[in-house]
């Protein structure tokens, strides 16, 4: 079976403005990729195009999950097939309790009604991994959560849904040093032959905890350079000037 997630010549725009301009990327299961790039270069656009956010229009290219072009699938189908996005700015949903929501999401992912006890056992276990308190999941989803709590909640959802390919959009921003470490340990627990991970970040810091196999640099809607972890270290030192000048 073709265990890859492929983005082929992807063009996407928002409100008539072309943001992604021919992006190519292949992630195999077991791999961790990182994308770094300046503000506004299109990183979150890529993440949302992958999930099928209706605000973003894909004008050319393909996104293939295990060989199947998923561009015509609605967002929820993509999620059920194992795609996951940890949002840069997770949405607040007052009135929906986090645990109840997670139950619905896990049922949707499993394609069946899960046993309530099994679900709660698993939830407890994952909360322990992420050092999340019980009362947290009884609150309304993300409402009044601190920036860091929201990010932690995204990763809790990821651990519960066990995706096949996950995009983490600036999960590190807003996390304090201890929280970053805990979250990264959580991601590392999930890391393995059954999942491909794409980490979007501005800082090498997160990549020190989760060593990527590949690092890509996104500038103006295209991947302009790819390499190993050393690329991230280099960027940290020299900034994007170094890349854009070289172009």
């Amino acid at each position: 079976m073709n265990e890859t997630f492929e983005i082929v010549d992807l063009h996407a725009r928002i409100e008539e403005r072309e943001i992604l301009r021919g992006l190519n990327l292949t992630i195999r299961k077991g791999e961790v990729h990182a994308i770094m790039g300046p503000n506004g270069s299109g990183k979150s656009t890529l993440a949302n195009a992958i999930m099928g956010n209706p605000k973003y229009e894909v004008t050319a290219g393909e996104i293939r999950l295990k060989g199947e072009n998923i561009l015509n699938l609605p967002t929820e189908e993509r999620a059920r097939k194992g795609l996951f996005l940890a949002f840069q700015y997770p949405c607040e949903v007052p009135g929906v309790r986090t645990a109840n929501f997670l139950k619905l999401a896990c049922n949707a992912r499993a394609g069946k009604e899960l046993d309530t006890m099994d679900f709660y056992d698993k939830l407890q276990e994952k909360m322990k991994v992420l050092d999340i308190e019980e009362k947290f999941v009884r609150r309304y989803l993300n409402e009044g959560f601190s920036g860091g709590e929201k990010k932690r909640n995204e990763i809790l959802q990821m651990l519960m849904l066990e995706p096949e390919f996950a995009v983490l959009d600036e999960t590190d921003s807003g996390l304090d040093i201890d929280a970053l470490k805990i979250v990264c340990e959580g991601v590392n627990k999930l890391r393995g032959p059954d999942i491909g991970i794409l980490i979007i970040t501005h800082y090498e810091r997160m990549l020190r905890y989760i060593t990527p196999d590949y690092v890509h640099i996104l500038v103006e809607g295209r991947l302009v350079r790819s390499g190993g972890p050393e690329l991230a270290a280099h960027l940290e030192q020299f900034g994007y000037d170094w890349i854009t000048k070289k172009q």
């Binding site: 999930m51 956010n53 209706p54 605000k55 609605p74 967002t75 929820e76 999620a79 059920r80 996951f84 996005l85 949002f87 997770p90 949405c91 949903v93 009135g95 929906v96 929501f101 619905l104 999401a105 949707a108 992912r109 959802q157 849904l161």
Partner: peptide
């Protein structure tokens, strides 16, 4: 709605949840 759908809830379920 979009946020709930990225977690696998179909459009109708997401609306009802909201």
């Amino acid at each position: 709605l979009y946020y709930l759908r990225t977690r696998g809830l179909d459009d109708t379920t997401a609306r009802n949840v909201l």
